[in-house]
Design a protein around this nucleic acid. Structure first.
Lengths: 221, 221
DNA sequence: TCTTGGCTGTGATGAAAGTCACAACCGGTC
DNA sequence: GACCGGTTGTGACTTTCATCACAGCCAAGA
């Protein structure tokens, strides 16, 4: 049975309220590379991640992809469009095969208007996202190595929220790693080689990568 | 008389609820350069901007300042600390002389828990901030000129929310403009000269700057 | 008046990362 | 096996911006 209680957003609700939200929910599966949402897609609904990771991205004026954040188990998306009634402002694309739950917008919206705990939890969620992005913004200024390491750590924790940041990372092509960290593909390649030589990143069977030291990475700025 | 109704966050409340929030409020004035909030400051309260602009900034691992966003009339800050009970995560520093209203945290918090409209408005506010930061994140990738122009536009609209982005901008030293756009001071200087020669930026009496064309700036990427 | 300190413009130089180009490799599939 | 597309590593060159250095300016104050 689906358990919404494991999502922080719904943790404060009564069991009965969570059931309301599940009304007409659907379980969806997407293959790696598939878009969950398109920009200007206004088909509303709340997507809850159960498995797999995805990137939230936007396209800049030169047509370059800019990755805004990562989503993984326990995360959700689509709440912005519901909140603002506006069309989506970014695309969400699966990096690995994903399984997620789609909740209908209507009951969620209704509950938002009548249960302050839900609205408050949502505000907290948005605030936490804002802080994450702030942190990313700060690190964005730093070197290619720091940016790449940050992405790897992010990938590790998104993949397995409870596991340490040194957990192995699903195999992604360098092109993808480069996009995630905002680097040229060649730079990502060179940087990875360097990090491996320094022993900070390990190559695992199947092409998976693993961070070796999660800590004191500040020095690489 | 203080009118909270002009703040989007409180627009949906009943007059009587707005009065509750004003209980023991204070009007504060800060000189340009003064910090409103310090990182790790946990004196809670909600700051509402009435006049002046300020920057939200953080310090990165190398001690460099990174500016996260700008605040101006109609904006507010301090809500994150109240929402999360956590210490502040960034500093807020006045760029010009500022006048603002400080609301006590307690009544705000109480109302958040009992009035879904307020909690929802707060969620919307955070969501909008997130989108703004997303947009900035996207533009951050681009050239010095684009970043500087974006900062100038931001300054103009923060200073006078209703005015067009070609409104004159309060005189700030180049050092400050550079920090706001994440450039070296010299680069900001050179870029400004170039922009003036191109007629995109105008020098006004008193050292104020003014954007000439607000539109089709994409091409300068 | 002269001095001082912050601000502005500009030149020279260097470092980091993007771009272009190419070779090796790997996993499919015919 | 041979072929093919996508991936990876790497070399050479270019671009952009940071850094260092300095000169001119203006405003405040002694």
């Amino acid at each position: 049975m689906l358990d919404l209680a494991s999502y922080a957003l719904f943790a404060d609700l009564r069991e009965e309220q969570r059931c309301q939200l599940l009304d007409q929910h659907r379980v969806l599966r997407f293959m790696a590379g598939r878009p969950l949402l398109h920009e200007q897609d206004d088909g509303q609904g709340l997507f809850l991640f159960r498995q797999g990771i995805a990137k939230v991205r936007s396209i800049d004026v030169e047509g370059q992809e800019v990755v805004l954040s990562l989503l993984g188990p326990g995360d959700l998306c689509g709440e912005m469009a519901i909140l603002q009634g506006a069309p989506r402002s970014a695309d969400v694309i699966c990096l690995t095969d994903c399984e997620l739950v789609l909740l209908r917008a209507a009951p969620f919206q209704a509950l938002l208007h009548q249960e302050p705990r839900l609205a408050l939890a949502l505000a907290r969620l948005e605030a936490r996202r804002l802080q994450n992005l702030n942190r990313r913004f700060v690190r964005r200024e730093s070197s290619a190595a720091a940016r790449l390491l940050q992405v790897l750590e992010d990938l590790a924790t998104r993949t397995a929220p409870e596991a340490p940041p040194t957990a192995p990372i699903p195999p992604l092509p360098q092109r993808e790693l480069a996009a995630l960290s905002g680097l040229a593909r060649e730079t990502a390649s060179r940087t990875l080689v360097r990090l491996r030589r320094q022993g900070l990143v390990e190559q695992m069977p199947g092409g998976r990568l693993r961070l070796v030291i999660g800590e004191q990475r500040g020095g690489l700025g």
